[in-house]
Amino acid sequence: MNKIANRAVMCEVLKEAAAKDRDVVVLCSDSRGSASLTSFAETYPEQFVEVGIAEQNLVSIAAGLASCGKKAYAASPASFITTRSYEQCKVDCAYSRTNVKLIGISGGVSYGALGMTHHSAQDIAAMSAIPGMRVYLPSDRHQTRKLFEALLQDDQTAYIRLGRNPVEDVYDESCVPFEMDRATVLCEGTEVLLVACGEMVKPIQEAAALLNARGISTGALDMYCVKPLDQEGLLKAAQGKRLIVTVEEHAPFGGLGSMVAQVISAHDPRRVINLALPDTPVITGTSAEVFHYYGLDAEGIAATVAKALEG
């Protein structure tokens, strides 16, 4: 079991970058611990800005820094940096075209029993609706590294959601396929296509293995780039499939499933099933318990696929 959380990898990549580039700046809203950025703050205090518990201020200050040439990485719980600071993300980051990377930590239901105030099940929908805002949900620590290394090379804003806990590796460290804004094919299949982002990628990888073992030829796609959605990669992977199933740690509206269905219906209509969190406050539990309850784990996904194919 991997013990390194994606957020810890982010910190490592940002520290490496900060060592070479004094314009790399990290901002937190009393969230350095939650974001695993304490060691960044200690190592590069001159490149770290603490704003206190004030997420709107966090985003605007980041935008001001970015407008003066800084590469600003603002990290705060996903639930707060997106919807509480929504106006600032829209106006000061996307609309004003500033190089602010908005890091949503402990995304989705990572905070478990802390409840709906701390869950971010609306962030994909909210952030994707902003013109000029890119949305990324890396699946494992290796992809997280690749993604942040790529983001450090560009000068546009983006929202990146990271989970709280270490997640099982999706990719082998020796070979991490990654192309910016291109979905990664996890496995090929002829009958069913599974598409997921973030922490739901590991479950579709496992579900694909289960289904293939049961004789249902299943492909799986890691759509870490939710926006811009890799339409070409999606349509290619969807070609000839009987069924497409999306899986996401997000409310059922406006997330990955909605976007995939939109693309599929416009270009190559076929059956799409969206698996997501419910349109209610999520049941209390750990991420694993919640995913299992709503059928978002490998067994649940495989069961949905099998049932859909019977029907």
């Binding site: 709107q56 201020n57 605007s60 200050i61 001001g64 820094l65 970015a66 407008s67 600003a72």
Partner: peptide, 10 residues
Amino acid sequence: SVCVGMALAG
């Protein structure tokens, strides 16, 4: 707040 960021950058 934006100006706070600009002043910090300076």
